[in-house]
Amino acid sequence: MKVLPAFFAFSLFSQVLAIPTSNSVADEVSASSELLPMVPVSPQNELERRASCTNVAKGIYATTTMQVAVIFVTAVSYPVKKFCKWRGYETCEEWASEVNEVFAWLLALSEVKKHYGEVSTYISSYSVHWTSARRSLPHDFHSEHLWALGYALNSTGYQYDSLVNLTLPSGGIKQNNDDPALISHVLMMNVRKGNGTGRDYTMLQFEDGVGQLQIPFEGSSASATSHQKRTSGKGVKISFDIGSARISMEKHVVGAAKAIATKWHTYAVEGHSNMYGFVEKVDKAALYFRTIVEMEGFGTNYESVNNCGALYEYLGEYLGTD
C-alpha cells in the first residue's frame, strides 16, 4: 500500500470547502430519467442482509452546478473499527487515498460520453440489450467496456499493464435468483501512477448497469480467476451506477473524489461498513455509489446501491453542507 505524501494527506483530510448551490429545498424533481432499477433483495441473500441503515442526508461538497451528498450509512460495527486499527489509523488514511483514486476513475467514466457518443453500450442501460429474446450482449460490448475503463484510467494519470476480460457464460452468472446477472468481469492488472507501486483491481458489471470495483487489502488479491470464489484477505469495494449527467474533469472530479474519500475515512474510523450517496449536476445524477468494507474477502455477489432506500429521491434537494 502506498504512503501519501504529506502535502496530499493534508489536502485530502482537511475540511472540504462547500459552496451551497441554493438556499432552499429545490422543487420536487421528476426522477423518471434518473430512476435506478429497484431490484428486490432476495431474503436468501445473506450478504445483502446488512445492518440497519441510518439516514444522514447531507451535502459534503458543492460548486455552483453540482453537489456531492452522503445519504445513508449502516450501523457501527466493531470488526470494521478493527479494520482501521490493525496498523493504527494510518491504515484507513492509506485506504482513503485509494478510495479517492478509484472515485476519480468512476467519475471519469461519466465523462466518457463526450468521447464516444450518447448511444454507448457502456453508459446506456445494459437492459436495453439484455432483455432481447436472445439475452445476449452486442458484439462490441466488451471492446467498448474496456475502452471506457482504459480512458478513465488514462485521463486521471494512470497506466496499467492490461485489462483482461474473464470469459462468462452467454447468459451471465446469477449468484441469487432475484439478483441481476453478472455480465462482465475485468481484471485491471498493475494499475499505477508514474513510478508508483502497481496494484491489481477487479471491475464487475451487472445486467442492470450497476458496477463494482474492488480495492484489495495489501497482500491480498483482487484477481481471482473464478467467478464463484471469494478472493483472500480484506478490502474495500465500491458499488456504483453511472447516471446521465456529464461532469467536467477539470472542474468537478478532483474535488468530488476527495470529498467522498474524506467522508469515507470518517465513517470507516467510526466503524460504519457501508456509505451511500451520489454526485449530481443540475438535479441529475452523474454517479450513485455505495462503499463497502469487506471483512472476509471479495465475492462476485450483486451489491445494490438502493438497499437502504432510493437514492434518486434526494436529487435536486439542497442538503446543507458538512
Results as ranks from 00 to 15, higher is better:
80 V>R: 05
120 S>W: 12
80 V>G: 06
150 G>L: 01
92 C>T: 12
112 V>S: 13
154 N>A: 15
161 D>F: 05
94 E>C: 02
152 A>C: 09
141 F>A: 01
96 A>T: 13
91 T>W: 15
158 Y>M: 01
127 S>V: 10
89 Y>Q: 14
137 L>T: 02
148 A>S: 14
146 L>A: 10
111 E>I: 01
117 G>W: 08
140 D>E: 04
96 A>N: 05
129 H>L: 07
116 Y>D: 00
81 K>G: 02
122 Y>S: 02
130 W>P: 03
142 H>F: 10
93 E>G: 11
105 W>C: 01
144 E>T: 14
146 L>Y: 05
142 H>C: 04
131 T>Q: 10
89 Y>N: 14
120 S>F: 15
112 V>K: 07
151 Y>T: 02
78 Y>D: 06
100 N>K: 08
149 L>E: 07
102 V>T: 04
114 K>H: 05
129 H>A: 03
102 V>G: 00
107 L>Q: 08
102 V>D: 01
82 K>Y: 14
103 F>D: 00
158 Y>W: 06
76 V>K: 04
119 V>T: 08
100 N>R: 12
154 N>T: 11
139 H>D: 03
131 T>I: 14
136 S>F: 15
106 L>T: 03
141 F>C: 00
136 S>T: 09
143 S>K: 06
161 D>E: 11
109 L>S: 09
116 Y>M: 03
117 G>Q: 05
120 S>G: 15
128 V>N: 12
105 W>T: 00
97 S>H: 08
103 F>C: 00
152 A>P: 15
138 P>A: 06
95 W>Q: 11
77 S>Q: 12
132 S>A: 10
103 F>P: 01
153 L>D: 12
93 E>C: 11
155 S>A: 15
106 L>F: 12
78 Y>G: 01
120 S>D: 10
142 H>W: 09
150 G>I: 08
125 S>E: 13
84 C>L: 05
142 H>S: 09
157 G>Q: 06
102 V>Q: 07
107 L>V: 11
151 Y>F: 13
109 L>E: 12
100 N>H: 13
75 A>V: 03
152 A>N: 07
145 H>G: 02
110 S>G: 14
160 Y>T: 12
114 K>F: 00
148 A>P: 08
121 T>M: 03
111 E>Q: 08
161 D>Y: 11
163 L>G: 04
98 E>Q: 09
140 D>Y: 12
136 S>L: 15
82 K>D: 10
162 S>T: 09
115 H>C: 03
156 T>Q: 13
155 S>V: 12
134 R>G: 01
149 L>G: 11
150 G>P: 06
75 A>L: 04
161 D>V: 04
143 S>I: 04
85 K>V: 03
121 T>H: 11
114 K>M: 00
148 A>K: 04
154 N>R: 10
84 C>T: 14
143 S>A: 10
86 W>M: 07
129 H>D: 00
145 H>Y: 12
139 H>C: 07
157 G>A: 11
76 V>D: 12
80 V>F: 05
93 E>A: 14
